[in-house]
């Protein structure tokens, strides 16, 4: 295995007396899909919130490595993690900008690049400098993503009025417009029907193949997880109970007991 893209070491997160994550370590390879699964309340989203800077971990090191250098995420404020370490994420409850158009959502994602091009707005107001060209490039990029997620003709609609499945895809496209090296997806298949899940699989695989972006994936839908993951980490009560390739994890007795259930074809039974 090549050097890991992200290396999580001894991550522990306590909220008062509650230990949400207890000494979890795992690695995510570049250009691979690493899934984090486990029953509700296992601490999966807390891991994401630590990686993306919404929480500051109690203990642990989160090291991200890419061509731009090494970043210790636990020491960086959230917006710097997105801007400099190039980690993007989506949310369990979709967080689009509902009142803004689909295209605007994708342009806001390219804010830092455009801000620089507009001379921090000073040149932009005066209408000098290369802002026009930068904006056209940003629109082209947004157009490319809208084509990939099949929303090109809805570009000027308000994001909030899109159907649920489209909003999910748009949120992924928006995260991808920040040019990430690591994309953290929090339950992207939640609430999708079978056809939409299949489309999501395609999209995630194309993000891995075409964009060479590493993906961290939280998901309950085993049809998604088992099909596309390269590596699976299983959490239960904040601890890592298993790790490995899909086939290996699927057969692990501890995982079956804690999460998959005796009949592994109905993983949903374990959520309740």
């Amino acid at each position: 295995m090549t050097a890991p893209l992200i290396r999580v070491q001894h991550l522990t997160m306590r909220f008062g007396g509650l230990v949400a994550i207890d000494n979890v370590s795992f690695e995510g390879a570049p250009g691979a899909i690493t899934a984090i699964i486990g029953p509700n309340g296992a601490g999966k989203t807390t891991v994401f919130n630590c990686i993306t800077g919404f929480y500051r971990p109690t203990v642990g090191r989160l090291a991200l490595n890419h061509a731009g250098g090494e970043f210790l995420l636990e020491r960086m404020p959230g917006h710097e993690i997105a801007r400099r370490a190039k980690v993007a994420r989506t949310f369990q409850n979709i967080r689009l900008f509902p009142g803004m158009s689909v295209l605007e959502n994708l342009l806001v994602a390219q804010h830092n690049k455009l801000m620089l091009a507009s001379g921090y707005s000073v040149l932009g107001i005066l209408g000098v400098g290369g802002y026009g060209a930068a904006e056209r490039a940003a629109i082209d990029k947004a157009r490319g993503w809208l084509e990939r997620i099949g929303l090109l003709e809805h570009a000027d609609r308000r994001a909030g009025e899109l159907p649920y499945g489209s909003q999910r895809r748009l949120e992924i496209a928006r995260a991808m417009c920040t040019d990430p090296v690591l994309l953290c997806l929090d339950e992207p298949a939640a609430g999708l029907n079978n056809r939409e899940s299949a489309e999501l699989n395609e999209l995630l695989l194309s993000i891995r193949e075409r964009d060479k972006v590493g993906v961290l994936l939280i998901e309950h839908d085993m049809s998604v997880v088992m099909t596309i993951s390269d590596h699976i980490v299983v959490l239960d009560y904040g601890r890592k109970i298993a790790e490995g390739a899909p086939a290996q994890v699927r057969g692990d007795p501890a995982v079956i007991r804690a999460y998959l259930g005796e009949d592994e074809t109905t993983p949903e039974a374990a959520h309740g």
Binding site: A109, L114, M115
Partner: peptide, 21 residues
């Protein structure tokens, strides 16, 4: 300009803005 769109985005969802850098 980007700053104006960022203002409106902040109005809509501050947490998402932070996640976008």
């Amino acid at each position: 300009l980007p700053v104006g769109r960022a203002w409106e985005a902040l109005r809509e969802d501050e947490i998402a803005c932070q996640a976008l850098g």
